[in-house]
Design a protein around this nucleic acid. Sequence first.
DNA 1: TTGGGCGATGTAAGCCCTTGCATGGCGATG
DNA 2: CATCGCCATGCAAGGGCTTACATCGCCCAA
Lengths: 351, 351
Amino acid sequence: MIDPPATRPPPAGRLPNPTLQDVAALVGVSTATVSRALNFPDRVAEATRTRVIAAVHDLGYSPNFGARAMASRRTHTIGAIIPTMENAIFARALQSFQSALRLQGFTLLVAASSYRPEEEEEQIRTLVARGADGLLLIGHDRDERIHRFLDRRGIPALVCWALDRSVARPSVGFDNRAAMQALAREVLRLGHRRLGMISAATAGNDRAAARVHGVRDALAEAGLADAPLPVIETPYGIDNGSAAFEALMSRAAPPTAVLCGNDVLAVGALRRARQMGIAVPGRVSITGFDDLELAQITDPALTTVHVPHRKMGTEAALTLIRMVQGEAFATSVELTADLRLRGSLAPPPAD
Amino acid sequence: MIDPPATRPPPAGRLPNPTLQDVAALVGVSTATVSRALNFPDRVAEATRTRVIAAVHDLGYSPNFGARAMASRRTHTIGAIIPTMENAIFARALQSFQSALRLQGFTLLVAASSYRPEEEEEQIRTLVARGADGLLLIGHDRDERIHRFLDRRGIPALVCWALDRSVARPSVGFDNRAAMQALAREVLRLGHRRLGMISAATAGNDRAAARVHGVRDALAEAGLADAPLPVIETPYGIDNGSAAFEALMSRAAPPTAVLCGNDVLAVGALRRARQMGIAVPGRVSITGFDDLELAQITDPALTTVHVPHRKMGTEAALTLIRMVQGEAFATSVELTADLRLRGSLAPPPAD
DNA sequence: TTGGGCGATGTAAGCCCTTGCATGGCGATG
DNA sequence: CATCGCCATGCAAGGGCTTACATCGCCCAA
């Protein structure tokens, strides 16, 4: 994307920023020395360094980003494109991602794709044009062309939130499918046979798709491969969860356990169950995924899968920085997501 | 084409990004013309423009950000420093802020201060050094020096989330104090006389401080200026809300209404009330502030103050862009925050 | 005393764009 | 037919920083 420039005359009464030149002149050394004093302190005599630092402070100097980026071919900027910051899971991970980045002297450029592939692609191009040294992306589900584009530009990209062993690209995340399978296994173990699912849209969202698969895996494993598994796909949101739950329960043979693709949908389901006078977990069990705080304050508390969001953000930052710095081969990092069994899951009614 | 003496060997197997030069060479015009074709389409002959665009496409050219920033002295980048993305209110506003920014061709640089003034200051300097054209800050409570620094650099800063008529700086937000006063007034109207408050730390957080003031205002207005108002300050978090609630209720004359500085603290209070067997709103009323989704799923639903987070984000983006483009004088935008009366507030027990 | 080695510093060549000013060509006008 | 004006384009000067390479002292060893 090429945006139209707006020429602005230097506003009157405004000091030009001090430059390396100014610092050098004040100290009485060359710009090269100042630059070194700032970037490689130990390549400069101690006395010089001290004077440089004092001058920098006096002048309130800070390096010009554009010039620096141009000369060093590095921006120390990392771009992240997430579906939306409104979803707490991403906001939380992004927060720890940013903190970790900062500790290493990187800043964060963010963009949201609203779960739309074209928008994600556009954002990727924008961030690359902005000089991002590396990119954080969510999930593997995207056109191969994009990765080719990034490879050609030599820009490392790290996928987060998913860990698919069949994909060679480095990623930091957990196995959504296995985690959901573990949860579904527990549900089946308790005796449930009629399951239902409320999922986020699976198109372009491999995490959501993997979770649905996980449930199917568990069914197959229990010799129930042919059992019907009604799945309702719906956008993110409490109300959507409520509506989907009602739809599921209005079927001829309503499920005794409703597995939701995320906690927010589950909370919606829980609420509607209460409104409909359906006992949870007495008549129907409900489970979530993510383990937001939300999951602990509902009544009953929500059985869910705990995802280590913060850790994922931090790991992603460290891994991505390693990639950007070209250190060795980037290897994927697998985190574990474990079950949190709470009150919303119990054996099915005896009837 | 003759290779210029290569300073640094281009990393193996990686194409250097195409430059304006490359495009110009391919089309057979000067770089100036290409630049103009891209930035001021109508200052170039139609035929030329078409060829330039084709070449840009062929080469996959996108302008080098650093060079552009340096030559034009504008980055089309806006920085935002918020306390934390983990708090849904900020994440939500940030999301709409970013969307609005993008529509105008700006990208977002974000940083979090963790509610620490020194950290905020450091982040401000970092973002300025990164070339942010403008800054979004939360609240007015910061050292005057910082604004002087920004003014000197000619970088417009917009304050969000607060609207204090005694401060001249432009802001987009609502009157925290008046909003809380309105809520407290309602509480008093119902007959409550012993109030208690759970607040976020007020030091360096003018929103929190204003809300406490609002309650005092309401008391004074009702001729109860001398009534004791126990206020417990505690960090953000459900558990902290719970602990504070318990502390408040353990006092000699426990309050009949507990006003919380935000919904999350209120949810914690609500939960502890249930654990302690204290009926809400039967024995004690509890209120929040923000109106997160959370507020609607608790039982009873939470009476709170609705804050138009998304609208605030969008307005902030538009206002800030206007400021950056030097259009006229930046004026503050006042949004309204209104009461949402729900089940958690009722008259005090008759005893 | 002298040469070598080394650490500290200086020199200057880029990095890639934008933009004020100069140039050249062409049609309209006198 | 000569002038003028204007449009499209080219020229070239930065903009602030990094860094390869050159230089300069200075100390130590021979």
